[in-house]
């Protein structure tokens, strides 16, 4: 198993940036990442290699500093696993409190079971 860890700036990937922010569903007091449009953009970022006979999964953790919380797919949901990977979102303050490792590891685990294409969600109450 190879683990490739990166920290990237969304501004360097204009297609992803446009998709994320143009489809962000803003509510009164929070926002939700659109899971119809964003996952495929994330799972096909240009630096992702897909070697033959190797299963490639991508776990992306979005970090926001908006005035409100940003959830993934549905209100109250931190992360969601898909067949080809998982996406999650945290605000910068939570990231600096918890660190990225627990969320990345947790969400990645949703992509690993076989059969792998079920979709799981994680709802956490963060205090």
């Amino acid at each position: 198993m190879i683990v490739d860890t990166r920290v990237v700036d969304i501004d360097d990937y204009s297609g992803l940036r446009n998709t994320v922010f143009s489809t962000l569903i803003e509510m009164d007091g929070y926002a939700v990442i659109d899971c119809d449009a964003v996952p495929s953009e994330v799972f096909n970022l240009p630096f992702i290699k897909r070697p033959q006979n190797v299963r490639t999964v991508v776990t992306a953790l979005f970090v926001f500093d908006l005035q409100y919380s940003v959830y993934t797919c549905s209100p109250g949901v931190v992360g969601v696993g898909f067949k080809d990977g998982a996406i999650a979102s945290l605000d910068i303050e939570t990231l600096l409190t918890e660190g990225p490792t627990p969320t990345l590891f947790h969400e990645t685990s949703h992509t690993l079971p076989a059969p792998s294409s079920r979709r799981f969600t994680t709802t956490l109450e963060r205090v």
Partner: peptide, 25 residues
């Protein structure tokens, strides 16, 4: 739901900084 690891697995863990001032980076 059983956690299982596949040997031939390439796992990308990406933090995407969408903050206004790149504070995550």
């Amino acid at each position: 739901y059983r956690l299982s690891f596949e040997i031939n697995l390439y796992s990308y863990l990406i933090i995407i900084d969408a903050t206004s001032d790149n504070s995550a980076i």
